[in-house]
Computed example of a mutant assay.
Amino acid sequence: MLIFFFLFVHVLDTALVRVSPEAYDDTVAIYKTPVVALLEYGLVAAILFHALNGLRVIAVDFWSKGPRYQKQMLWSAVGIWFILMVGALYPVLGHAVREVFGS
C-alpha cells in the first residue's frame, strides 16, 4: 500500500512541473520536512523487509531443506533487515536531522 501511495504521489508531483513550476517547487519543499523523511524511512523499511522476506519464501519453496530452516531464515532476514535499516538511517534521515537541528 505504501509503495502504491508513493508511486501515485510521485507521478502527480512530477506532472505538476508542467502545470505550475512554482507549485512543484512548493511541493518539493514539503518533501524536505522531517515528517516526510520519517515516512520515507518507513517506506524503505517496508520495501526492504518485503524483499528479504520474499527471498526467504523463495528459499522455503524451492530448496528441499527450506521448510526445515524457515525459522532460522526468518531471523536471518530480520537481522539483515535491521543492519541495513541502521545503515539507512543517515542517508534517509540525514537531511531532516540537519533541518531540525540546523547544522
Rank of each mutant, 00 (worst) to 15 (best):
L52P: 10
Y24I: 04
A46R: 15
L48Q: 15
N53H: 12
P67Q: 05
K71I: 01
Y90R: 04
A51D: 07
A88T: 10
V11A: 15
I30G: 04
G102P: 13
Y41S: 13
L12N: 11
V19N: 09
R98L: 09
A46C: 08
W75Y: 08
L48V: 08
L43V: 01
Y41M: 10
V36K: 12
F62E: 11
R68W: 14
G79L: 12
A37E: 06
W63I: 01
K32L: 03
W81R: 06
H10K: 08
Q72C: 04
F62W: 08
G102T: 15
A51F: 04
F49N: 02
V11T: 15
L39T: 02
F49T: 01
E40C: 05
W63C: 04
N53P: 01
G42I: 00
V60D: 07
I3M: 04
F49Q: 03
L52N: 05
G102S: 10
M85Y: 05
L12Y: 10
L74W: 14
S20M: 06
A37K: 11
V35Q: 05
I80D: 02
V78W: 02
T33L: 03
P21H: 14
A29T: 11
P21V: 13
W75V: 15
K32M: 05
I3F: 12
A59F: 04
D13G: 01
F62P: 05
E22D: 10
L93T: 13
I58C: 08
R18S: 12
Y69P: 14
V36F: 09
W75A: 10
V11W: 15
W75N: 12
L48F: 14
S103R: 15
V35M: 08
F49V: 00
H50R: 07
L89E: 03
G102Q: 14
G42D: 00
A45N: 13
L48T: 15
V97Q: 07
A88Y: 12
K65Q: 13
Q72M: 07
D61P: 14
V97E: 13
V57Y: 07
L55S: 07
A96S: 02
R56I: 00
L16E: 00
A59L: 12
I83H: 14
G87K: 09
V19A: 14
R98P: 00
V17C: 03
H10P: 00
V86I: 15
V100L: 08
I3N: 10
L39C: 13
D25V: 02
